[in-house]
Simulated assay, not measured.
Amino acid sequence: MARIAGVNIPTAKRVVIALQYIHGIGPKFAQDICDRASIPAERRVHELTDAEVLQIRETIDREYMVEGDLRRQNSMNVKRLMDLGCYRGLRHRRGLPVHGQRTHTNARTRKGPAKAIAGKKK
């Protein structure tokens, strides 16, 4: 099992698909990494040589922000908004939708399960 950026990537899958198991690498970045390392698209992870794995690892370290650093940056961005007290920060703090969605109905993912209100029946 190949370990890249602190993540065990599956060995039976194609390299382009397996790289997407790393947080911060999607289809486009995975394809770019394979192109830079000159790895064919149909190659499987277990077929890679140690040199190719090392080349992929160095490319990711040099070019992309992934896993822990990316998660830390995202959480710092949210924390900054909350500290500023701007509208988006207040929505994060209260656990409500941030991007203008309605909350009268729906928004259950952010708000959690519905709470019963006593005496609501008519």
Rank of each mutant, 00 (worst) to 15 (best):
L54A: 09
A5M: 00
D83I: 02
C86I: 15
Y87S: 09
R91W: 05
G24C: 05
A118C: 00
I60L: 03
A116T: 14
G100S: 10
R44F: 14
H104C: 00
R93H: 10
L84R: 14
I39C: 06
L70C: 01
K121D: 08
P27F: 09
R14S: 08
K13W: 12
A116L: 12
Y21C: 03
V78P: 07
T59F: 03
Y64A: 00
C86E: 12
P40N: 12
H23M: 08
C34K: 02
R36K: 12
P113K: 15
R93N: 07
A51D: 08
R71C: 03
Q73E: 12
R110W: 14
H23G: 03
C86A: 12
E58M: 05
Q20K: 03
D32K: 05
K121W: 02
L70Q: 07
T103W: 00
A114N: 15
Q31I: 10
A37Y: 07
S75K: 10
A30Q: 13
A12M: 15
R91L: 11
K111A: 15
D50F: 01
E67L: 04
H99I: 09
R102T: 08
Q55M: 09
G68D: 11
R102N: 10
E42P: 09
L19I: 04
Q101N: 08
G119E: 00
E63N: 00
R14Y: 04
G95W: 01
D69V: 09
E52P: 10
I33W: 01
D50M: 00
G68S: 13
K79A: 13
K13Q: 12
K79V: 15
A51E: 12
L54N: 11
L96R: 06
K120F: 02
G26A: 02
D83V: 08
L90T: 10
T11G: 13
Y21Q: 08
G85L: 06
L19Y: 04
T59P: 00
N106S: 12
D35C: 13
K121N: 06
R110E: 15
I17G: 01
M65K: 07
